[in-house]
């Protein structure tokens, strides 16, 4: 009898934890995990470029392009996003916003403004 109640208790705990599981966007943890793959840096950069270009294309087709009209996707964005995700505080930020912040930086938006935007995104993500 004790065993059955213990099993029920355990199952209940598992269900509760699964139900409360927060959705996780493709973020810095996923991005940084690419670096652990056993391939050349060229291949890792290719994978990262594909992901950023996917974000850029999807933003274009959802009528909210990440890059401004005069901006074009360049490999430098991969470096900027690498740099962004090297800071532990940014790991929870979805890759869409990481690219957005990189494009703001490239467009010479004020650092203070970028910082405010980053904090607003973090607040929103933590509230989800």
């Amino acid at each position: 009898m004790k065993k059955i109640s213990l099993c029920i208790l355990l199952l209940g705990a598992l269900l509760v934890s699964a139900a409360s599981g927060q959705y996780r966007f493709y973020d810095g943890s996923d991005w940084n995990s690419i670096d652990t793959l056993p391939y050349s840096s060229e291949i890792k950069t290719t994978i990262k470029t594909l992901i950023l270009r996917a974000a850029e294309d999807a933003s274009f087709f959802s009528n909210s392009p990440i890059l401004a009209k005069d901006q074009k996707f360049t490999p430098e964005y991969v470096d900027s996003v690498n740099d962004f995700y090297s800071k532990a505080d940014n790991k929870k930020i979805p890759v869409y916003f990481a690219l957005k912040i990189a494009s703001m930086d490239k467009a010479n938006v004020l650092k203070k403004q970028i910082q405010l935007y980053r904090l607003a995104v973090l607040k929103k993500i933590n509230a989800l």
Binding site: L37, I43, I47, D57, A58, S59, S62, F97
Partner: peptide, 28 residues
């Protein structure tokens, strides 16, 4: 690409996940 089959799937699903999420983030 010279990567394992599972990493090819990883790359493809990462692209798809990103596309889906960008739509959600942009409310579209």
């Amino acid at each position: 690409m010279q990567i394992s089959p599972s990493d090819k799937i990883y790359t493809k699903t990462a692209i798809l996940k990103t596309i889906i999420e960008v739509g959600i983030i942009n409310d579209n």
